[in-house]
Amino acid sequence: MSSCVELKRQREKETVSLMIGLYCRKKHHTNGSLCEECQALNDYAIMRSDKCPFMESKTFCSNCRVHCYKPDMRERIREVMRFSGPRMIFHHPVMAVRHVIESKKEKKRLEKEGQK
């Protein structure tokens, strides 16, 4: 597997871990470590990223045609993303801006594919 794909995978894992950490700190009032529930979600998200066969071509899990998360974990990660996403600009601004740029590029790419 190419180093580009591995870098992308590592970045995705780092991002999801930061978002879960932010969620846990704000919602569960933890300091420095995740509560048991959030740690389980983080471990699950990292495992799913490690096993993702579409890493080379996808941008974000939400855009993937195959949703590999179990329904309960998918709902939990959605809740984390809805909460943490808007707050990332204050806590991790570079990562947040990169995400917006990649989202816009992906939206244009998907629109082009839809026109073909």
Score class of each variant (00 low, 15 high):
3 S>R: 15
4 C>L: 15
4 C>F: 15
5 V>I: 15
5 V>K: 13
10 Q>N: 13
10 Q>W: 12
11 R>W: 11
14 E>D: 12
16 V>L: 11
17 S>M: 04
19 M>Q: 11
20 I>K: 05
20 I>T: 06
22 L>D: 03
22 L>R: 06
24 C>P: 03
25 R>S: 13
26 K>R: 14
27 K>V: 02
28 H>S: 02
30 T>E: 05
31 N>F: 09
31 N>K: 11
32 G>E: 09
32 G>Y: 08
32 G>I: 05
33 S>V: 14
34 L>M: 08
35 C>Q: 02
38 C>S: 05
39 Q>C: 01
43 D>R: 08
44 Y>H: 07
48 R>M: 13
48 R>Q: 14
48 R>G: 01
49 S>G: 12
51 K>L: 15
53 P>S: 12
54 F>S: 13
58 K>D: 01
58 K>V: 11
61 C>N: 04
61 C>E: 04
61 C>P: 05
61 C>R: 05
62 S>E: 09
62 S>D: 06
63 N>Q: 10
64 C>K: 04
68 C>P: 00
68 C>I: 00
71 P>G: 06
71 P>T: 11
76 R>L: 11
79 E>C: 09
80 V>K: 03
80 V>T: 05
80 V>P: 04
81 M>S: 12
84 S>M: 06
85 G>Q: 09
86 P>D: 10
86 P>Q: 11
